[in-house]
Design a protein around this nucleic acid. Structure first.
Length: 175
DNA sequence: ACTGAACTTAAAA
DNA sequence: TTTTAAGTTCAGT
């Protein structure tokens, strides 16, 4: 019981820093933001600590290639997206999963409120839980939790509002 | 088994 | 303007 399926951890170095990815045979399980943005004078591959996580490369298979390509294109301002079937969300809470699907349906460059997400996820009153789902979003960027704002303002963001603004800016959106 | 917190909201005080 | 009650999930205690 509680058998863990094989998961591989990688880093992806981009102009915006080192992203972390968790990949399983069933799909992408996690994609997380760099803790800090790369600045001039920062050298990928040193400093930063934990030296043991390998870089994700094209030869990691079709999924790896899609992830690398999609990430590079998105950071270049394009609308590229991964298919929902590339994600492995197994074992995640049902409401959160429905909420993430609702996020996934928000078009590039548009935003929705937490209450709209709650409604789309099938529990119009579960607004707080919608916020919880955003906070627990395992696949940043491609499941666009950054496109969810509060009814009265920008709302929050786990990695910091800085990142939320930055990701929205990539879509030509201001906060 | 409970409690509080988490990327909220709308309504009441 | 501040307080409060309302889903879902999880980490503590």
């Amino acid at each position: 019981m509680h058998e863990r399926l094989p998961e591989r951890r990688y880093v992806i170095t981009t102009p915006l820093g080192r992203w972390r990815a968790v990949v399983a045979d069933a799909g992408l399980r996690e994609l997380s933001l760099p803790r800090r943005v790369v600045r001039d004078g920062w050298h990928p591959g040193r400093g930063g600590g934990k030296g043991s996580v390998p870089e994700l490369r094209d030869q990691e298979g079709a999924l790896g290639r899609r992830v690398l390509k999609a990430l590079a294109e998105r950071l270049d301002g394009k609308r590229t997206n991964l298919p929902w079937s590339d994600f492995d969300l197994s074992g995640r809470p049902p409401f959160f999963t429905r909420a993430w699907k609702a996020l996934y349906a928000i078009p590039f460059g548009e935003v929705r409120t937490y209450s709209q997400i709650a409604k789309s996820a099938g529990s119009p009153q579960a607004v707080r839980a919608a916020g919880g789902a955003c906070g627990a979003n395992p696949i940043v960027l491609f499941i666009p939790c950054h496109r969810v704002i509060a009814s009265n303002g920008p709302g929050g963001f786990g990695a910091g509002l800085d990142w939320k603004r930055r990701l929205l800016a990539l879509e030509g959106r201001d906060l």
